[in-house]
Amino acid sequence: MKKRALLLLALTPFLLTQCGDGSKGGDSSSSNSLTIGFAQAGAESAWRTAETESITREAEQRGVTLKFSDAQGKQENQIKAVRGFIAQGVDAIILAPIVETGWEPVLKEAQRAEIPVVLVDRGVQVSDDGLYATLIASDFVAEGQMAADWLAKKTGGKANIIELQGTPGAAPAIDRKKGFEQGIAAHPEMKIIASQSGDFRRSQGKEVMEALVKAHPNLTAVYAHNDDMALGAIQALEAAGKKPGTDVLVVSIDGVKDAFIAMKDGQLNCTVECNPLLGPNAFDAVEKAVAGETLPKKTVVQDRLFEASQAAAELPNRQY
């Protein structure tokens, strides 16, 4: 018995220090400032971390109490988080859905509790789009198309392309593939000679490219669904004795800092920025939704394409 009490005692302060002054949330809802729950998908990439930081920073600046939850890449955790926010009675919820399906029941619950939900960076498939206030995201299809258009212009519509896909089944991977295929459809001499998933990872991008470059030595271009895979592929191309950026054109999507460094070094040719700094937009939407305004169902974040020639000038401005 003694031991048990001791261990309990040992555990309690640990919990207390972790949870500290968590009672703030309840108090602030009575005053003017808002309490917002943010259900983030995970922290798997620099892009994701930049998005989280953008939203946390914006919350601080606006004096909003932010309840943050990281689902660690699991949808079930994310649903739990949203339901937890609803039970807490937050004023609004920002949700960055991991996948597009499976949100109907929990969004209905939020609707019943009259808590508006703002979606960021990915849409959801629901029977009634009244279940969420608005979606703030990039257009993944357009991103793929921009990359294809640039490549078509640069190569004069002639290329043997190896495509590095993202995680199979993930919305950005599907849409970026679709957009790129639409983009090259008008150019019969632009062919995807091999397409394999690199799981959005740098290491996988390298490993897959090592294998593919040997099976398809006639490649002239690489299209990667994100910068990390492109950076891995560049290393594999170099090891295979090709000059990435000149012998083999490399285009990718996201626009992370490392991609700009690679462009400055002439190894990456262009990247389509997919802006993760959604904080200001998201909180504008949240404030309007809480005030009862009706919002447009989708706000498309404008993405820009950066070429190697712009890299040096743009690099200091990169936040992520």
């Binding site: 500290g20 968590g22 309840k67 943050f68 939850s69 990281d70 739990k80 988080a81 937890g84 926010f85």
Partner: peptide, 10 residues
């Protein structure tokens, strides 16, 4: 409890 706390770094 961790969701209710909502301040914990992932």
């Amino acid at each position: 409890a961790l969701v209710f706390d909502g301040r914990l770094n992932s």
